[in-house]
Design a protein around this nucleic acid. Structure first.
Length: 597
RNA sequence: GCCUUGGUAGCUCAGUUGGAUAGAGCAACGGCCUUCUAAGCCGUAGGUCUUGGGUUCGAAUCCCAACCAGGGUACCA
């Protein structure tokens, strides 16, 4: 039981005894005492004045005296205005340290028999272009909330739905046939996803030129768009694909495999992975069958042009198309099929979709549709909706060439990390391989932290002109603190300085040491909170606060260079534990920590 | 038009179920490396929390309205 719970219970009891009333749970407001006041935990007494019928000061004093007498942990107290500041005994905080230091995985629960199965879908790329900055935010959030869910004792299946079929990939295929000149990843040395992305751009270039030509000949823009030879070929290609034309399917497979190989590299470097991958080419027919079943059962209706619709006006939503007039399926159809397959494959307790907030409406509709189709889990779908990454020029648009490529960005970050380390004269005693690995760790740490520290639901700004920082509230700052702790431990071992982790009696602790202990005590709560609102930002901010506190402690207290062996031992245990918590927190963000930097 | 999300320092962002004098980092300025890693620490400066009402002991936080910005809005994904 943590200290807040202990106090909460005691306050409740106290109020009953002093003023004979049963307080509502939420009327007992406990908070961490602000730094400029003396104390550890603060109780707000205003809500109780009605019952005590005394001044805030008097009420605070009475409650404080009562608590001090009854609970061992409360050592003393002071009252300022309506705030009762409780001072918690050192021995309690030292006990926290003891627990944290000896715990196998402090603050982290392991999955048990009664834990929930949470399936988390993230990434969801199209196979016609490489991953960009928007995908980076998606991937990092998806991976991190998976880790946070695990840390809260759930079983997690990470899944990806690959949009591998449709007109977009046919465009790249047409471009390869017409203007590809036999290019392959092998003979060009390009990553497959980049090559296919190039072809897609080439298609668009030719297509636009054709449209311009037709418009010049007197066609309207819309007519031109529908009659340009390239688009006709792409549509022909899509029909051939749906008809399983062997040659088309083979080209499709070849080019998609190029892309997957490229994606795998990107995912690997980013440090994200999946337990199960679904492909839309395998799920869209399932979705179509479901829609047709719904039509037969009268859940949906058909227009005169043969398109199939769902009328959701009863639910306060709109009418939504499910099958086009030509019978082909839309995005929604595919998602219905994918959902059905997933629930067949796993006994999912909770399905989470990590998808940008531009699709809020889509998931609202999907949820209702699944429910209508008779799947009771439909209502419980959770859309983890995150904001877009904006550039100073506005939204990223692939057609306007304003996308920030994921691979390029990661490489650029490594270059900056390298330059930075050279300027600072770091990493001189490492082997070249270790040095490279460390640059990678730091660069990715900077990128990941930059993205994850922001509240997911908010849009965020990325300015490519200014490279991501390595100083201040950043991943490298946290990594640096970890590395420095490891350095202290190495030196301690070298000098035969040992410490006994089992010791529970330590000398009097300083203010900054106590602040650190309090921060350590908060880690499990931060993990739980992050799990409740699925926000890696909670963990990121926690790590930053912890590290900042440690750095202040570090500069004010020497750890190894003191004669008092008891103090040295205490500070070593404290440092080890801080290192442990940093590592655990960063793991939840998918960020590695280096032993040296 | 309707629905939805946001607006906090020059910039990027925190701010817990409504609590004490609204916090960090970057940028600017001034200190600190013979001492466990200076990717650090300390200090200065920077605010009408978009605006106007309301709720109450107390509002950046909750409610209403306006303004500004992003997203969505029936055959793109």
């Amino acid at each position: 039981m943590n200290i807040e719970n202990i106090i909460h219970v005691a306050v409740s009891q106290t109020l009953k005894e002093l003023y004979s009333f049963e307080p509502a749970a939420n009327s007992i407001q406990l908070q961490i005492t602000r730094k400029d006041f003396d104390g550890d935990i603060t109780l707000v007494v205003f809500p109780f004045l009605r019952h005590s019928k005394k001044s805030p000061e008097e009420t605070g004093r009475e409650i404080g005296e009562h608590l001090q007498a009854k609970i061992d942990e409360v050592e003393s107290f002071n009252v300022i205005k309506g705030f009762l500041n409780l001072v918690i005994s050192d021995s309690y905080w030292i006990d926290v340290l003891y627990q944290a230091h000896n715990a196998e995985n402090y603050g982290v629960k392991t999955a048990g028999n009664n834990s929930q199965l949470v399936m988390i879908e993230y990434s969801s790329p199209n196979t016609n272009k490489p991953l960009h900055l928007g995908h980076i935010r998606n991937n990092l959030l998806g991976y991190s909330i998976s880790e946070i869910q695990k840390a809260n004792g759930n079983k997690v299946v990470k899944t990806n739905i690959v949009n591998d079929r449709g007109i977009h990939i046919c465009k790249s295929m047409v471009a390869w046939q017409k203007w590809g000149n036999g290019r392959t990843p092998e003979n060009t040395g390009k990553k497959g996803d980049h090559l296919v992305g190039e072809l897609y751009v080439e298609f668009d270039k030719h297509y636009k030129a054709e449209i311009a030509g037709l418009v010049e000949k007197g066609l309207s823009q819309k007519e031109a768009e529908n009659q340009a030879p390239s688009i006709l070929e792409a549509r022909e290609m899509l029909r051939n694909w749906e008809a399983r034309d062997p040659e088309t399917v083979q080209l499709w497979e070849t080019m998609n495999n190029w892309v997957y190989k490229g994606f795998d590299e990107t995912y690997k470097r980013m440090g994200v992975d999946f337990d199960k991958i679904y492909y839309e080419s395998e799920t869209y027919l399932v979705g179509k069958d479901e829609v047709l079943r719904g039509l037969k059962e009268g859940i949906f209706y058909q227009e005169e042009d043969n398109s199939v619709w769902a009328d959701l006006t009863q639910e306060g939503l709109d009418k939504k198309i499910l099958l086009r007039s030509d019978g082909t399926s839309v995005y929604m159809t595919q998602d219905i099929g994918t959902a059905k397959m997933r629930f067949n494959d796993y006994s999912i307790d909770k399905m989470v979709y990590v998808v940008g907030n531009e699709q809020n409406y889509h998931f609202q509709v999907l949820s209702v549709l699944l429910d209508k189709l008779g799947y009771d889990w439909g209502r419980d779908l959770f859309h983890f909706s995150y904001g877009m990454v904006e550039l100073p020029s506005g939204k990223m648009k692939s057609r306007e060439g304003t996308v920030v490529d994921a691979d390029d960005l990661m490489s650029e970050m490594v270059n900056v990390a390298k330059k930075m380390a050279e300027e600072l004269g770091k990493l001189e005693e490492l082997t070249p391989e270790e040095t490279e690995q460390t640059f990678e760790t730091i660069a990715l740490g900077a990128l990941k932290y930059f993205i994850l520290k922001v509240d997911p639901k908010k849009n965020m700004l990325f300015n490519p002109e200014e490279s991501i920082d390595f100083n201040g509230n950043t991943g490298p700052f946290i990594q640096y603190t970890y590395a420095r702790i490891q350095s202290v431990l190495r030196k301690a071992a070298k000098n035969q300085v040992t410490y006994d982790a089992l010791k529970r009696q330590f000398p009097e602790i300083s203010l900054k040491e106590k602040l650190l202990l309090k921060r350590i005590a908060l880690f499990p709560e931060a993990v739980a909170e992050a799990g409740a609102n699925y926000s890696p930002a909670v963990i990121a901010n926690y790590c930053y606060e912890l590290v900042k506190e440690y750095n202040q402690f570090y500069h004010d207290h020497s750890i190894l260079n003191i004669d008092d062996s008891e103090k040295r031992e205490f500070r070593l245990v404290l440092s080890v534990t801080v290192g442990k918590v940093i590592k655990q927190g960063m793991t939840l963000l998918g960020i590695n920590v280096p032993e040296r930097m």
